[in-house]
């Protein structure tokens, strides 16, 4: 399989914690601009896979390439983030004691050195960008509120907004609709589809309704490796997937 033209290339990746194989010979390829949904039961290795891609966990073996030629196993979280991989955690993680706006300011792409942060002043370009993002994630009216005061769904959106501010090439989104109302879920699906127009995206989600809404290629993980891959209809018809995940 060729790496060129891929945004993410995982081949034969394995990682074990104290003998437990969290990821077992996992191979996954994501093309430039593609959006992919990942499903799978608890403990299938979804979060560990994200840990590997973002440099939090080092694989014991296997290849992890970004953008065709960057070996991600040689870089740490901050490096990988500046290269253009953004990550949303399963539990919404925003800076609760900052305002919505400041959360975005800290996420905005740009120089990441301490000195530049000390003497930073906001440029007009940045202000425009923040306005845009606030618009996109529907938080303009809450701009000056503390992130702590947002609802659960709004925190999820703020976090997605922070990802956008980071201007990544690839977004990893872990369970974006957990705990959302149906209306919020639909809204989020629309938001992600918007984003997918000019970004590559991986979405991990349990909500089949939401996955269907996205309408993209689906990969089902089980016990650390790929069980089935294809359209949602194809995957959900796969007897092994039914067996381990969807239930009869």
């Amino acid at each position: 399989m060729s790496k060129s033209g891929t945004i993410l290339y995982l081949d034969g990746v394995s990682v074990a914690f104290d003998g437990f194989k969290a990821i077992n010979n996992l191979s996954l390829v994501l093309d430039q601009g593609e959006m992919r949904a990942i499903i799978g039961p608890n403990g299938a290795g979804k979060t560990t896979m994200m840990d590997i891609i973002t440099g939090k966990t080092r694989p014991n073996s296997g290849q992890v390439f970004f953008n065709g030629d960057v070996d991600l196993t040689k870089h740490d979280e901050a490096d990988i983030a500046t290269m253009g991989i953004g990550r949303k955690f399963q539990k919404p993680t925003v800076f609760e004691s900052h305002t919505v706006e400041d959360n975005l300011v800290l996420a905005l792409a740009g120089e990441r050195s301490i000195l530049s942060a000390l003497f930073a002043r906001r440029s007009s370009g940045e202000s425009v960008r923040i306005d845009e993002i606030l618009q996109t994630v529907r938080l303009t009216h809450r701009r000056d509120d503390l992130a702590a005061d947002l609802s659960h769904g709004q925190k999820q959106w703020l976090e997605i907004g922070m990802l956008l501010a980071q201007d990544p090439k690839l977004l990893l989104v872990d369970e974006p609709v957990a705990g959302m109302t149906d209306a919020e879920t639909e809204e989020t699906a629309r938001l992600l589809k918007d984003i997918a127009r000019d970004h590559s995206v991986i979405v991990v989600e349990h909500d089949m309704h939401f996955v269907r809404e996205l309408g993209v290629k689906v990969t089902c993980l089980h016990e650390g490796s790929v069980l089935s891959e294809g359209s949602l209809d194809h995957v959900s018809a796969d007897p092994r997937v039914v067996e381990v995940y969807l239930g009869r």
């Binding site: 973002t54 979280e77 901050a78 983030a81 500046t82 953004g86 990550r87 955690f89 993680t93 925003v94 800076f95 609760e96 004691s97 900052h98 400041d102 300011v105 800290l106 996420a107 990441r112 942060a117 922070m162 980071q166």
Partner: peptide
């Protein structure tokens, strides 16, 4: 602001680069 961000959610700052 970054200091406070690190205080409250260190991993988040790291994944922001």
């Amino acid at each position: 602001k970054l200091m406070i961000a690190v205080r409250d959610a260190e991993p988040r700052t790291r994944f922001l680069g």
